[in-house]
């Protein structure tokens, strides 16, 4: 199985790559359109900001390519947000393959932004990405922007109210948390994606 990591400049690419290696998968890191188009699975990692993330995809000429992919695609953290329509972060137009907005968390008493740490995942509908996930299991989040709950939401987490932790529409999937840093839970969810 050919798995590619889209090299859009995110700094967590190494971590995602090592996580895949622990699952026995050697993922190529590439920005080459032909390699990406031909892969069985495409992962869009990303840590950083939405504006520079989209700018990088445009520079690489990957925007239309990413939108047109038909194999399973997984966006992780910022990568998930880039799959959405628009991000409040830098007022950025994103790929728009999942019809969802990205909004900033608002600070409130006891609610410190960024949302950083382990939080429970709650399944809202059956999806193969969540196979084997037990109630109350936690994943590691680090983010200041989030996708509200909508019909694309597969699992939520709660930070001053529910937000989307896992989203999916057609072949496009997103995980707001870092599966590569979410211990056994993250490994299982990554394996679930590889098994789609």
């Amino acid at each position: 199985m050919a798995v590619v990591l889209v090299d859009a400049g995110g700094t967590n690419i190494g971590s995602v790559r090592y996580a895949l290696q622990r699952l026995g998968v050697e993922a190529a890191l590439t920005a080459d359109p032909v390699t990406i188009r031909g892969a069985d699975k495409v992962i869009l990692p990303g840590v950083g900001a939405a504006g520079p993330g989209m700018a990088r995809l445009r520079e690489l000429g990957l925007v239309e390519l990413m939108r047109s992919l038909t194999q399973p695609v997984l966006g992780v953290c910022l990568g998930m947000q880039l799959l959405c329509t628009h991000s409040e972060e830098g007022d950025t137009e994103c790929l728009g393959v999942i019809d969802a907005p990205v909004r900033r968390f608002h600070e409130a008493p006891g609610l410190r932004v960024p949302h950083m740490g382990w939080n429970a995942l709650a399944s809202v509908r059956t999806h193969p990405l969540l196979d084997g996930l037990a109630a109350g299991e936690q994943a590691y989040f680090v983010h200041s922007y989030a996708v509200p709950v909508g019909d694309y939401t597969v699992a939520t987490s709660d930070f001053g109210g529910p937000f989307s932790a896992v989203i999916a529409r057609g072949n496009f999937h997103g995980m707001q948390f870092h599966p590569e840093r979410s211990a056994g839970v993250g490994a299982r969810l990554l394996q679930n994606f590889l098994s789609l």
């Binding site: 290696q21 622990r22 840093r181 979410s182 211990a183 056994g184």
Partner: peptide, 8 residues
């Protein structure tokens, strides 16, 4: 460390 560790 990054290769073997799956927590942040």
């Amino acid at each position: 460390v990054a290769r073997v560790i799956d927590i942040p």
